[in-house]
Design a protein around this nucleic acid. Structure first.
Length: 381
RNA sequence: AUAAUGCUGACUGCUC
C-alpha cells in the first residue's frame, strides 16, 4: 500500500492526476486495500486540479466502504470545497467535523482561509475570536485574509495582540510579509518599516519574499529609486534577488519608460542564470507594446511560443489588448477565437476585445462579444 | 516495536 500511496501522491503533486487515478483503479483490481493515505492523496490531487466532482466521488466511495474519514481526509475535502467556492458545503462539512471530533489547528487554518477567500469576513473573524489554539500559520492566514479584504488596520491589531501575549505565540515571516505587503500597497511605508523592525526584534529574518514585497510597494507608488535601492541592498542582507524581484523591477522600469535600465535588468537576470518565466515575458510584452514597441513585443511573443511555452489567460489577454490598441483588431480576433475554442478565456478577455471593437467603431462585433459573455457562463461586471 | 507515504498561510504580469 505504501508503494502505491507514494506513487499516487507523487503523481498528483506533479499534476499527473489521471495517472494517479489509473493507479488507484489498478490498486482496486489487484485487491490492494486503499487506506486513508490513498484517499486523502487522491482527494487532495483532484481538488487541486479543479476536479471537485472527482474528489467528492472518492470521498463518497470511501464512506460507502465504511471507511471512517480521519481529520486529514476531512481537511483535504474542506480545502477543496473552499477553493472551489462551495461555501455552503464547507459549512456542512465543518459542522460534521465538529460532531465527529475531527478538527485540529490545520482544520481551523484551512477553514479560515476559505472563509476569507470567499469574502465571509465576519464569519472568519468570529471563528478567529473564539479560537483557543493558533499556530504561526493561523496568524499567516488571518493577517493575509484581513488584508486581502481591506481590513488592514484590523490585521495590525491582530499582530499587536500577538505582541501582548508575549512569547507564547509565534508570528512568523508569512504573517509579517502579508502585513508589510498591505501597508506598502497603501503607501504606508513608515508603518511597513515599523513592521520590518518588529520582525527583526523577534529574530524573524528578512527573506527575499519580504524584500520583493517592499520593492513592489515602491514600484506601485512610483518610487523607483527606493525600489532599486532595496533591490541592490537585499543581497547584502542575505536575500538574493529571485525571478520575482527581477520581474517586479522590470515592470517598474518599463512603466516608467526607462527602457535602457529595463534592458540592463533583463541582461543581469540572464547573466545570473535566472530563467525568465511566463510573467517576465508577459511584463515585457505589455510594457514594450505600451510604448509603441509592438514589433519587439511580438518578437518576444513568438519567441515564447516557439520555445515550447504555453501562454496562460493573462498573457493572451495582454497580447489581445495590445493587438487591438495597435490597430491589429483582426489578429486580435483570431487569437480570441482560438482561445475561446480552448476554453481559455475569462471576463477580462471579453471586455478587452469588446473595447477594441468599440474603439474602431465596429459596434455589431462588440455586441456579438457581449453575447459570448453569457454563452461562456460569465457575469458581466 | 519503530520508521517511511496524505491536509493549511506571504511577493510579480492583463480590461481603467
Amino acid at each position: 500500500v505504501v508503494s502505491y500511496n507514494v506513487m499516487i501522491s507523487g503523481l498528483c503533486k506533479c499534476g499527473r492526476f489521471s495517472e494517479g487515478l489509473d493507479l488507484w483503479e489498478r490498486m482496486k483490481k489487484n485487491e490492494r486495500r486503499c487506506d486513508l493515505f490513498t484517499y486523502s492523496s487522491l482527494i487532495h490531487g483532484l481538488s487541486e486540479a479543479g476536479d471537485m466532482g472527482g474528489a467528492r466521488r472518492v470521498y463518497e466511495e470511501m464512506v460507502g466502504r465504511r471507511v471512517r474519514p480521519d481529520v486529514v481526509t476531512c481537511n483535504a475535502m474542506l480545502n477543496g470545497l473552499c477553493k472551489a467556492g462551495k461555501v455552503e458545503e464547507c459549512f456542512e462539512l465543518w459542522e460534521e467535523m465538529g460532531q465527529w471530533g475531527l478538527r485540529n489547528v490545520r482544520s481551523y487554518n484551512t477553514f479560515l482561509k476559505g472563509l476569507f477567500e470567499n469574502g465571509k469576513v465576519d464569519e472568519a473573524v468570529s471563528l478567529w475570536d473564539g479560537l483557543s489554539e493558533a499556530d504561526s500559520a493561523t496568524y499567516g492566514v488571518v493577517v493575509h485574509g484581513l488584508c486581502r479584504n481591506g481590513f488592514v488596520n484590523k490585521a495590525l491589531r491582530v499582530l499587536e495582540e500577538a505582541e501582548h501575549k508575549g512569547g507564547s505565540v509565534d508570528v512568523d515571516v508569512f504573517a509579517y510579509s502579508s502585513m508589510i505587503n498591505a501597508l506598502c500597497k497603501e503607501g504606508r511605508f513608515d508603518e511597513a518599516g515599523g513592521v520590518v523592525e518588529l520582525m527583526n526584534k523577534h529574530g524573524c529574518k528578512l527573506n527575499s519574499n519580504v524584500c520583493n514585497v517592499l520593492i513592489d510597494g515602491f514600484v506601485k507608488h512610483s518610487k523607483l529609486d527606493s525600489a532599486m535601492r532595496v533591490f541592490r541592498e537585499m543581497s547584502s542582507k542575505g536575500c538574493s534577488p529571485t525571478v520575482v524581484s527581477y520581474n517586479i523591477l522590470i515592470n517598474g522600469l518599463l512603466k516608467a519608460g526607462r527602457f535602457r535600465e529595463a534592458y540592463d535588468c533583463v541582461k543581469e537576470m540572464l547573466e545570473k542564470g535566472w530563467k525568465p518565466d511566463i510573467i517576465t515575458y508577459s511584463t515585457l510584452i505589455d510594457g514594450l507594446s505600451e510604448s509603441n514597441m509592438m514589433d519587439t513585443a511580438l518578437k518576444l511573443w513568438h519567441q515564447f511560443l516557439n520555445t515550447g511555452h504555453k501562454p496562460d489567460i493573462t498573457m493572451y489577454n495582454i497580447v489581445i489588448h495590445r493587438l487591438c490598441s495597435s490597430g491589429k483588431v483582426q489578429d486580435a480576433l483570431q487569437l480570441y477565437s482560438t482561445m475561446r475554442q480552448r476554453k481559455c478565456v475569462n471576463l477580462v478577455t471579453h471586455n478587452t476585445i469588446m473595447e477594441g471593437f468599440y474603439k474602431v467603431g465596429k459596434h455589431e462585433m462588440a455586441s456579438m462579444i457581449w453575447g459570448h459573455i453569457t454563452e461562456d457562463e460569465l457575469q458581466p461586471d
